[in-house]
Design a protein around this nucleic acid. Sequence first.
DNA 1: CGTTCCATTGGAACTAGTTCCAGCGTAGCA
DNA 2: TGCTACGCTGGAACTAGTTCCAATGGAACG
Lengths: 335, 335
Amino acid sequence: MAATIRDVAKVAGVGLGTVSRVLNQSPLVSAATRQRVLSVIAELRYNPSQLARTFALGKTLTVAALAPFFTRPSVVERLRGVEATLAAAGYHLVVFNVEAVARRDECLRDAARSDRADGLLIISLAPRPAEVNAFREAGLPVVLIDTFAEGLPGVSIDDVAGGALATNHLIALGHTRIAFIGDPQEDPLTFNFTSSHDRLLGYQQALAAANLPLPSAYQRHGLHGRYEARVLARELLQLPEPPSAIFAASDTQAMGVLEAARDLDIPVPQALAVVGFDDIDIAEYLGLTTVRQPLFESGARAVELLFLMLSGASAPPAEQVPVELVVRRTSAPLG
Amino acid sequence: MAATIRDVAKVAGVGLGTVSRVLNQSPLVSAATRQRVLSVIAELRYNPSQLARTFALGKTLTVAALAPFFTRPSVVERLRGVEATLAAAGYHLVVFNVEAVARRDECLRDAARSDRADGLLIISLAPRPAEVNAFREAGLPVVLIDTFAEGLPGVSIDDVAGGALATNHLIALGHTRIAFIGDPQEDPLTFNFTSSHDRLLGYQQALAAANLPLPSAYQRHGLHGRYEARVLARELLQLPEPPSAIFAASDTQAMGVLEAARDLDIPVPQALAVVGFDDIDIAEYLGLTTVRQPLFESGARAVELLFLMLSGASAPPAEQVPVELVVRRTSAPLG
DNA sequence: CGTTCCATTGGAACTAGTTCCAGCGTAGCA
DNA sequence: TGCTACGCTGGAACTAGTTCCAATGGAACG
C-alpha cells in the first residue's frame, strides 16, 4: 500500500496539517520541520494522491473540450492551442469527439451534470437555450469557440465579413458568376448555427452590394467533407452556365472543388477560381487562396477566458479575432 | 449547495447505504424503497458527485494518452480510434501533446506518479527502461502504440516489412536508383526508437536482396515535416546522379518530396516515383502511392488491451497489425 | 517576573461517496 | 410456537487530502 499523508506525519513525528503545509509550500513551517518532513517524504517514497486532493479541494484541474469531428484539421489546430494553454497552467484536457447527434446531446448533458471538469469548451457546436441554462444552474463555466449562444462567452470570427472578404476578392478579379459551397443548412448536430451559414450570408451581401445576380442554383450545401464538396462542385461545373469562381466555406470543401476541377479538366485558376476558408496547414501546400483565421490562437484565447471565469470573474463578453485574405495560386483575374 | 447522498437519505427516510445501492443498481433494494429514493433524488435534483465517487472507488474512469505532435494526421486518426473505444466504455480521454523533450520527460514522470488516470497510452514515443520501471512500480497499466519497450504491451506494425514492401514495389517497377527520406536518426524525443528507423531498415534489406547499390548519399534524415522533407528531396534531385524514386518514411514527408519535384519541374511519376507511408486521409487526394497501416484500429485495439489489463489480466504480448501497399498515381514503371 | 504577541504546530472536522457488517422482520417449516 | 434463513436495511468506517481553530512555547517588553 502506498504511503499516505498520515504515515508521513507519524514517521516524521509531526501533525497532519504540518505535512500538508509542507506539501503546499505554506510559509507557516519552520525550516527545520520542513527539512524533516521532506526527508521522510523521500524516505517513504510518498507521493500525494491527486484523487484525494481534487476531492478535498473540490476542483479537478481539468477542462473538457467538446468538438464535432476532431479529425478536421481546423479543429485539431484549435485543440492544440487549447492543450498548450491548459498544460502551461497545469490543467488537463479531456476531449470528446462528437460525430453523432445522440452523442452531442449526451455529452452536453453529462458535462453539465458531472463535476469531472472545472470548465467546458465547446467547439463549433451551439448549445440550445435549455442546455445553456443547465450549465448556469450547474455553475459550470463554459466558453464557446467558433459558435454563439445567448449569454455564453466565446471566441469567434466575423464569418459574415470573412465570407464577404472572399467574395469581394473574386469580384475584384472580375468574376461575376460566383458560386458557393457550404455545410448543410439544417444540421441537427450544430443546431443550425454553423459558421458556414454566416459565410454564405457574407457571400450574398457582397454579391448584392456589387449588383451581381444570386442564382440559387449557385448555392450548394452538403456534409462538411471533401467528397461531398467534390460532388457538389461537379454539379456546379456541369451547369449550362457554370460559375467561373467558387467560394467554399472551408478549405476541406475547397479541396473537393479542386478535385472536381481536375476531374473535368478545368484548369485552375485560368478557367476556375477557388477560394477556401480557414487556412489549414494543407492550404499552403495546395496553393489555395483562402481566408485565414487564427485557429491555434482561438483555442488559447478561449482557455484564457475560461481561466478568467474560474478565478471568479463573471462571464466576459464574446470576442472576435480578426480574419485575413491569403491570396495564393487558385485565384486569378478572369481571363 | 448541491444535495448529497446524505440529504437524499434523510429526506427519503432511509439509510446511506440504501441510496448508494439504488444509485448502483444493486438488486438488494425492495421495489418500494427504490421508488421512494428515486423520487426524492428527482425532487432534490440530486446528482452524485463523480469526484467523491472516483475517490471512494480509487478509480478515475479516465485514460491518458501521450502523443508527440498530435496535429499529425496519423496521430489524430489513432486518437480518434482511442477516443471512440474509450467513450463506448464510459471512459474519458485526457490528451497530452508532446512537442518538446522537457515535456516528454515531465509527462512520463507525472503519469507514473499521479493517480489521475487508470491507464496510459503512449503513441510513437518509447519510454526508457527507468520509465518502464516507474510504471510497473506505480502499478499503472501502459499500452504503447507505434513503438516498443521491453516488457510493455503494444500495438504496432512491422515497419521493416513495410519499408521493404514500399521498396520492393519500386524495384519491381524497374527502379534502381531509389532514395530514402526519413526522421532524424538521433531524436531525443523518441529516444531513437522511431518507426522511420525500421522503415529504413526494410528499405536497406530490400535493396540488398535485389543486389542494388545503397549509396549513403541517397539516405537523408530530417525533422518529420513537409518543409524539411522538401529541402532534403531537392538536394537529392539535384545530385549529379539523382534518384528515379524516393521512398519517404511518412506521407507527410512524401508530400514534401512532391513539392520538391514540382519546384524542379520534375514530372511525377514519369521522371520520379514517390512512395509514402501511413495512408493518411490526404494521401488519396494527392494520388500518393503509400503503405497503409490501420491507424484508427491501432488506437482502438490499444484501448482493448488496456481494458484487459485494467480487468486484472497480466500484460498481453505486443501485437502487430497488418500493412498493405496502396498503389496510386505517384509510382509507375521506370520509363 | 508577568504579560502580550506571534510564529509554529496538532489534529478534529470536512469533502461525498462505497463497503461491509450487524440487525431486523418476516416467511417457511417442523 | 419456536427456530432458521434470508431479504432488506442502517450506518460506522473508510478512501486521503485540506482547512481551520485552539494550543503551545519562546521572545520581547514593561
